[in-house]
Design a protein around this nucleic acid. Structure first.
Lengths: 194, 194
DNA sequence: CCTACCGATCGGTAGG
DNA sequence: CCTACCGATCGGTAGG
């Protein structure tokens, strides 16, 4: 166990993340995972308790990443709603790019969580989105933003951001921060040149 | 068979669409569908050839809807890139709102298509997205749009549009056309008041 | 980490 | 549209 070699449990989770991303949680069998790792299906249970436990770990670890990035970007920050929105967007992209595969699973597979995890997950999601809604509310109240339905705008912004995981390559020309800044810029100012 | 009663085959497809949307294709069993329809699983095969055939019908029917709306909006139309983009966006939203459940399945479950349908689907998807890319290319060349990566911008715009199926209610205050226009407006001009 | 195995469930067919 | 049933595969356990 050192920094260069992942623990077997981490290896299992990483392999599972990749397969869940490619085929979806329901369509990935324990035997698929075992084969990808070169072991027998039954051996997986030395490292994990159940298939769903892996999904839980992926989803809640990503949720923590999103909250940590958001908190860091906003706690103690005072500024206009535009500035806050911009910081929240950059933080969101930063969290996505930290693990694009886990993000894909987080966004698409959480519905396969069982109770009580499903309810807990939805609660966290609502809380996270709430921060965006508050920023939009502030900007609408101050007359900084154009007249828009808060929830409508929040969902549209987040869905625009959430496909970043599909094409982000850590080896690409732009850093996560640069991509986040450009996205924030287009969301605030639009595609059309002034 | 008249206009008021759906054929049994259409009933099966509609029930399947709803279940695929809620639980995903892989997690929906033929027995789930049968139960929702009040018949035995084996009886489904009087109306459909296989589970995947249903998915194929949903995905390719939606694809035809998207193309038809796009063609109607753009064929023979001459105008600025902004105007074209706006029309393409309204058409896209119109197609989504015609069947939000089928749209959800179209967007999320197409990866479960088998060959050769999967390749055909991807080809159509690339062709459809290509129209958006061309419009962006035109607007970038003419200096109408701010400097952006074409593919990046195309994917971001479409992902912002594609969550409309999540919250659109035909009974809501805004029509599909109005929603499309507002989305086009925000994409072109941004959230920030000028 | 393996062999051996469990009961449940899967998509689908035969024959009416 | 049903009963009866098929072989394959599922997540998971016992015991080493």
């Amino acid at each position: 166990m050192n920094g260069r070699v992942l623990s077997k449990k981490k290896q299992v989770e990483q392999t599972a993340t990749s397969l869940f991303q490619q085929r979806g949680y329901a369509a990935t069998s324990m035997r698929d995972m075992a084969q990808a790792l070169g072991i027998e299906a039954a051996s997986l249970y030395s490292h994990i308790r159940s298939k769903e436990e892996i999904l839980q770990n992926i989803c809640f670890r990503m949720a923590r990443l999103f909250f940590a990035a958001q908190d860091e970007a906003l706690s103690g920050f005072t500024g206009t709603a535009s500035e806050k929105l911009s910081r929240a967007i950059v933080a969101h992209i930063k969290a996505i790019t930290e693990d694009t595969s886990a993000s894909a699973v987080f966004f698409s597979e959480w519905r396969h969580l069982s109770e009580p995890h499903l309810s807990e997950f939805k609660e966290m999601q609502a809380r996270y989105e709430g921060t965006f809604r508050e920023i939009l509310h502030e900007g609408l109240g101050s007359g900084e933003f154009v007249d828009l339905d808060e929830k409508f705008a929040m969902l549209t912004i987040l869905s625009a951001l959430n496909w970043t995981h599909q094409w982000f390559k850590p080896s690409g020309r732009m850093s996560a921060e640069e991509i986040g800044q450009r996205l924030a810029d287009v969301i605030l100012n639009g595609l059309r040149k002034k």
